[in-house]
Nucleic acid binder design. Sequence first.
DNA 1: GCAATACTAAAGGAATGACTTGACTTTTGA
DNA 2: TCAAAAGTCAAGTCATTCCTTTAGTATTGC
Lengths: 121, 121
Amino acid sequence: MLNQSPQLDRIFHALSDPTRRAVLDRLTQGPASVSELAAPFGTTLAAIVQHVQVLEASGLISTEKIGRTRTCRVSADAIVCAEQWLSERRKVWEARLDRMEAYVLKLQAAEKKRGKRKHRK
Amino acid sequence: MLNQSPQLDRIFHALSDPTRRAVLDRLTQGPASVSELAAPFGTTLAAIVQHVQVLEASGLISTEKIGRTRTCRVSADAIVCAEQWLSERRKVWEARLDRMEAYVLKLQAAEKKRGKRKHRK
DNA sequence: GCAATACTAAAGGAATGACTTGACTTTTGA
DNA sequence: TCAAAAGTCAAGTCATTCCTTTAGTATTGC
């Protein structure tokens, strides 16, 4: 299995900032310019530009400059990539818990049987 | 909807480090002590202790100290929480893409009709 | 043309993060 | 009993992050 560690680093790091998650949230509603993205926040435009750069470097969004405005849109791959990483681990871990539970139940059943034998003697 | 932003901050930040993801990977195979977690890495035990603290603060793992050893295990909630955040956004965004596509197809169909009318004239 | 708009780039500062080292504490096993 | 094992705590260092300010460049609309 490919590790793609540096990409995951960038994706999860991008997602770890509330402003960037809010930007991403806004973009799931549809494309927007950098100024539009900046509007709801009490920060400078420059700060949002930097967040946009982090998001784009991570692959979570893609941007396109037409004239003087840069339009940002959510990009498929990265979000799916992160989701899969999490989902795979959760599945492995849940499967192990299930095996554990089955094992414990088996032990309990065996214990019960032995209990019965003891009673008969 | 609850925002639970600070928890997501911590979860995604915890996941953004490759060492911590590797620790988490190891723990999906089953519980382990801090020393066991540290073994595969070329770092000091103290460094891993700090990673474990970050993971625990995020809710991705829980730990329990028995005697002199601390046993770490994966914890359900946080990973599910992160997965859901991603999955919700992806779904909203995919739904929007579908609507867009439907709209474009409708436009194309209308365009075709007008083309036919033009031909008839 | 030229002022307003929409970024962009660079530099700096405060805060946070990832490691290390070194000095403990607590438990365990011989 | 006492040394090794397993962690814990506190500094301290160096890098990175987030944000600001300042000074640009490229476009647009009148």
